[in-house]
Structure formats: structure tokens, C-alpha cells
Design a protein around this nucleic acid. Sequence first.
DNA 1: TAGATTGTTAATCGATTAACAATC
DNA 2: TAGATTGTTAATCGATTAACAATC
Lengths: 222, 222
Amino acid sequence: MTNKETQKNISKAVIRRLPRYFRYLRELIRLDIARISSKDLSERMNVTASQIRQDLNCFGGFGQQGYGYNVNSLYVEISHILGVDRNFNAIIIGMGNLGRALAWNPLFEKRGIAIKGLFDIDKSIIGSKINDLTIMSLDFIEEFLKSNNIDIAVITTPKSVAKETVEMLSKFGIKGFWNFSNAEIDLPNKDLVIENVHLGDSLMALCYEIAKKTPTQSVSEE
Amino acid sequence: MTNKETQKNISKAVIRRLPRYFRYLRELIRLDIARISSKDLSERMNVTASQIRQDLNCFGGFGQQGYGYNVNSLYVEISHILGVDRNFNAIIIGMGNLGRALAWNPLFEKRGIAIKGLFDIDKSIIGSKINDLTIMSLDFIEEFLKSNNIDIAVITTPKSVAKETVEMLSKFGIKGFWNFSNAEIDLPNKDLVIENVHLGDSLMALCYEIAKKTPTQSVSEE
DNA sequence: TAGATTGTTAATCGATTAACAATC
DNA sequence: TAGATTGTTAATCGATTAACAATC
């Protein structure tokens, strides 16, 4: 009954909502809730039931009329759609503060992603260990990638070298990039995918909202 | 000519684009470009000229027919809209790896935000210094907030305590939250604003795209 | 069977793009 | 003035919501 392989034109908006479904389903499992209707879920998630049904139906008829959705099997389906069951492998390029923080972050493991290598160009930190992994010189990246099947490169380099780093890694076969550098990177070819985090933009969106709430009296207490 | 204070119903989509305009304008300034048309900018940014004109016009008539936009004054306007000229103050709650990485991050300074305090509950790190600031005990937060005018709290606590932390801080008058904990926090009142980062969702959106490109053959090389 | 709830079509709403008159 | 380009209205496109027949 599922047409998960038929997913033609799933809109960006739907995809952005999937991880949230994933998180709520995980929570329902934790709460030992075996079954849920779109209405019940919609109240928990603060969206419309209609949207939930529409979203899920992009990928297949996961529900059952008169019953709702089986929480566990829906979780499995969405995990599959999101690739959580794929055991993707990742490397981190740029072991500054952010790179190090990500290396420790349980996020990857929780999403079924294994961090397989850490790279930098700074000789003073190459060789040191983070969480069982040794920071390697970027000079060895080509060699490393020949013997390791890496799906995702986390880009935590300075902005100035982010573009060339992505180009280099894509030449060595990496297809997925999680970009924390503030650079706008246009991808050299269409097989590649990049997810830009742009923390600065997020922070500014927050500042906009705060500024809007507290009209103009400039708060400079220097 | 500007009606910046008349900004009634600016859509979320427009607001999300503002930081990107901000970044491009900064770049134009760096390149010593004094004036730009919506068409030229649209080509650089890969959006339509129409969208640029629509977006900017939400906030005021910043351009001039036959001429285009003055880069510098447009930058000043957008900076103002985004509150970059407000000198907001921030604190970071939770000095784990991510909290520490953010404390070092030049992001805040670049957006005109000063980090004024770092807090944790772990006695083993309280008192240690990061980037000129001493990590303080969360027990002293109320006192601290009485004598410091803080606009933004960066939430890098564990998920389990994020909600109560936000509630506590909002009682002490903090209005803006930049939330890195994976928790979904519904705000206790309407004056507050929260910006959720959800790194895990971003990572999964990337995984979805990668999974979609490399059909199902499960890559488990354990 | 009757009740519940989905899957799905149709209606509405909002956002993007196109077009062009206004104007520098 | 003529050319360029905005501000803004109208047209299009896409996404969300409502409604309901299908069905468990």
C-alpha cells in the first residue's frame, strides 16, 4: 500500500516538517502510545490534522481509516524516509570550537550517523584526540576517503576556505555537505546536496523580532 | 519617505530573507560597490528582482527610480530593521561544548551583540574563564539580571531542563531566547520571542536529500 | 452495522512573479 | 528629454485548510 519509492515532487516545506514528525513520534513511543490519530497528533504539534494527513500521504498511505496511525510503524517509515536507517558516515572538516562541539554532540549517533574522521590543517592540534578520534591532517583526506565510505562532510572551516574545501571534497566523491561556515556555496554539480546552517541568520531573525517588540529607543548603555 | 515604523504584517518568509540581504550588502560594501539595481542584486543572490523589490518595500521606499539602491544606506536601513544597531546584550546558559563554542564565536560581535555572562550549574567549571568571561553559577542569575540589561538568553542546556530554564529566565525579564536545546518550548507569554535552531532537524533534512539521491541499497558496512 | 478516521479532492489563502505606470 | 529602474498592482503559482466520500 505504500508508495514510498514513488515520491515525485515532495515540496521543501513538507521535507522541513518531517524531522519534527520524527521527534514527536519518538516521544510518543517513549510515552508508550501505540496509536494516534491525525487529530490527536495535530493538537500535540500545534498544526492542522489536514496538514499531517497531507504530509504523510506524500510518502504513502501509512494510516488506516477509522483507526489512525500505528505510532511504531509510522516511526519506522519516517526514519526510513529520512535515512536514519542508512548508517551514514560523516567527517568533520575544521576542528575549531564549533567543530569540536559537533564532534562531541550526540546528535549524529541519535540520527544513525557515525563520525569517522576529524580533519584540520593546524599542526598544533593534529594528532590530538576528541572522543576516541584523532584529528588528522587535511593532507591525508584523499587517502582517507579512498578507504572510507563517507556520505557527509561537516564544514566548520573558516568562511574563506569553505568553498574550495567543498569543491575538493566533492572531487573525492563526497555528496553531502552540512555547512556551518557563513559562506554561500553554489555546488559544482547536481548530485551534491548542501544544507546550510547560517547561525548568524538565525540570530538576526531573533533580533528582528526583539527589535520589533521594543520600539526604537536605542539601547546603548555604554 | 521611509515608513519603517509602519511595518504591519511582514510575512515570516520576508523576515527570513532579510539576514541574507544584510550579508550581501555587506559584501557589496567590501567590494566598493556604491549602488545596485534590484536586477543586478537578483543575479548575485539567485532570486528574482521582483522579490527583492517587494521585500524591501515592506519596510520603505529605499530605492530610487532610474537609479536603484544606494548600497550603504540600504545596509544601514536593513541593519536597523534587524536591530544590529541596538547593541543587544546576551548571556549563555549551559557551558557544555556547544555553549563554549558559541561563547568564542565572532557571530555575536559581528551582529552588534555583546555576551555579558556565562552560566552553568556544574561546580567543576564554575569560575573558569572563557574569552574574558568567568562562568558563573546559575544560582546567581537573578541577582545578575537585576544589574544587567540582558536581551537574549542563548539556551544550550540539556533538553530536559530547557523548558524550566526559559520559564525561569522569562520571570526575571528576559524576552528573547535562542534555543539550541532540542526541546520544543511553548512560550509562557506573548511578549517573548524564541528562535529555535534544531540542528538535528537540519541534519535530517540533509540526510533525506542524500537518501533520496542514493536509492535504497542499505549501506551497512559493519 | 455504526463510528471513526483516513486519503484525497476542492476551496482558500498566501507568497512569488510579471507587468507597467510613476518618476528619478 | 530619454533611459533606467523603482514601487505597486495584477496574475500566477504553490501551499494550507476544509470537506467529504471511502473504508477500516
